[in-house]
Simulated scan of single mutants.
Amino acid sequence: MPEAVLSLSDVRLTLQGNAGPVEILKGISMKVNRGETVGMIGPSGSGKSSLLMLMGGLERATGGRVEVLGQDLTTLDEDGLAAFRRGRMGVVFQSFHLIPTMTALENVALPLELAGVADAFPRAQEELAAVGLAHRHDHYPAQLSGGEQQRVALARATAPRPALLLADEPTGNLDSANGAAIMDLIFALRDRHGATLVLVTHAPELAERCDRIVRLADGMVAA
């Protein structure tokens, strides 16, 4: 029987808006098995990114159960969630979220240092080489193009060799050429590290490369 890396049971998310509570997610149940690649698609406002954030413990569900690698995330506080994510999950955002005062190498090495990895900088250099940026290791984010910054963000997410890789519109801020290159890199890094991959995308060509597509509409999984 396949091993579920991610299991959601009747997950709900309600946020307070100016006009009162807003239901973002309305009872989502799904599983993602080890080694699987799942693409989440749907119109803007359907809840895709919010669901991904719940999977990563970056947003807290207001109902239901979110189980990742056997741990119910809804039982953990913020410190517990941060400790659990470290080394187990990698997250790539549409906005690169690099630390501007750190070089590319330092950005990639940071999660490794936080995890207590002894060879953090050699491994970070190896990951930068894997995304074609070994020669840019001493450059700061402002000195890099958008495509290069997303490559650094990918290297940072995968450097700890996480079991689960989450990507939220990873090609959304890039032109078509850079977007295509990042697509290829995401799947190459998934294969290299054997990670389970869940990605949110508006790009049909990226979703079609996944093992399975989950469509969201109005905060629910569409039939």
Rank of each mutant, 00 (worst) to 15 (best):
E3F: 00
E3Q: 11
L6I: 12
L8E: 00
S9Y: 00
S9E: 14
S9R: 09
S9H: 09
R12T: 09
L15G: 00
G17V: 03
N18I: 05
I24K: 05
K26Y: 01
N33V: 08
R34L: 15
E36W: 14
G39D: 13
M40H: 08
M40D: 05
I41P: 04
G45Q: 04
K48N: 01
S50H: 03
M53S: 14
M55Y: 04
L58Q: 11
E59R: 12
E59L: 14
T62N: 00
T62Q: 02
G63N: 04
R65H: 12
V68P: 06
G70S: 01
G70Q: 00
L76W: 04
D77E: 12
G80H: 03
A82M: 08
A82F: 11
A83N: 12
F84G: 02
R86K: 13
G87Y: 08
R88L: 10
M89K: 10
M89R: 09
M89G: 10
G90Q: 08
V92S: 04
L98Y: 00
L105T: 09
V108C: 14
P111H: 14
L112H: 13
E113K: 06
L114K: 13
V117K: 03
D119G: 01
D119Q: 12
A120P: 02
Q125L: 02
L128D: 08
A130D: 12
A130W: 06
A130S: 15
G132F: 01
H135S: 14
Y140A: 12
P141Q: 12
P141L: 15
A142G: 15
A142C: 04
Q143M: 06
S145A: 09
A153F: 09
A159P: 07
P160H: 02
L164C: 12
L165K: 03
L165T: 03
L166W: 02
L166K: 04
A167G: 04
D168K: 02
D168L: 01
G172I: 06
G172W: 06
L174K: 14
L174Q: 11
S176P: 03
A177C: 00
I182T: 10
M183T: 15
D184N: 15
L185R: 12
F187S: 08
F187H: 13
A188L: 15
L189I: 11
G194F: 13
L197Q: 05
V198Q: 02
V200W: 07
T201C: 03
H202S: 08
P204E: 08
A207L: 12
E208S: 15
D211Q: 04
I213S: 04
I213D: 07
L216I: 02
A222W: 07
